[in-house]
Amino acid sequence: MKKSNLNSTQVNNGSKHLDSTIRETYCNCVIANDASRKIDFLILVIETLQINATDSLLLKAKNIGLSDDFSSRVQFWKMRCSNPLRNTHTLTSLTSEQIDSLVELISHMAENLYPLIRQLLSSKEPKKLSQERWLLFTSRLKALIRKRMNIKRSYIASLLGEDNNEPFRELLVILSLSCGEGGANRLKASLYHQS
């Protein structure tokens, strides 16, 4: 593992070099099994943090020039239905182009929502205020999970049943580390495996 991580050094002399390096990086890689689940849950967290997030997501996708998959709510919903934990799960998997687009979109949205994400993750905030924020966040996220996901699945049942906020915190950490260009590369790398 260490060997594969120590092959290339980075030079800040233009995007062409970076693009080709990124393309080479993903040559012998496959999409991780949990990629669609992870992406759908990250979008769910974005929806929790922002009211009417779907409209914002579609508008952002249009602004950054993403493909036709983001032209309508239905197309977008179809992509998200590749998550096997959804109520309306379709037996499709995300293509690498769709993953690239979704990663870019999540990264941009995370950048917009970074102040909110940071507030939730910070340990320096007043304890009472932090508890109230977490209560509001978890109740909204759990309501969305109950509405969209298959609650008979053990993972979903455990998310809804437990008072432990650790899985939700992990999702917020992923979003906080996904901001910007470097964050998008980091998130993309986490959605693939070396074959």
Binding site: M1, S4, N5, L6, N7, S8, T9, Q10, V11, N12, N13, T21, I22, T25, Y26, C29, A32, G182, N185, R186, K188, A189, S190, L191, Y192, H193, Q194
Partner: peptide
Amino acid sequence: FNIRWDINQERPFRK
């Protein structure tokens, strides 16, 4: 910045 940083490109891990 036109500086060569001694850092690695993000890569996917092995399973």
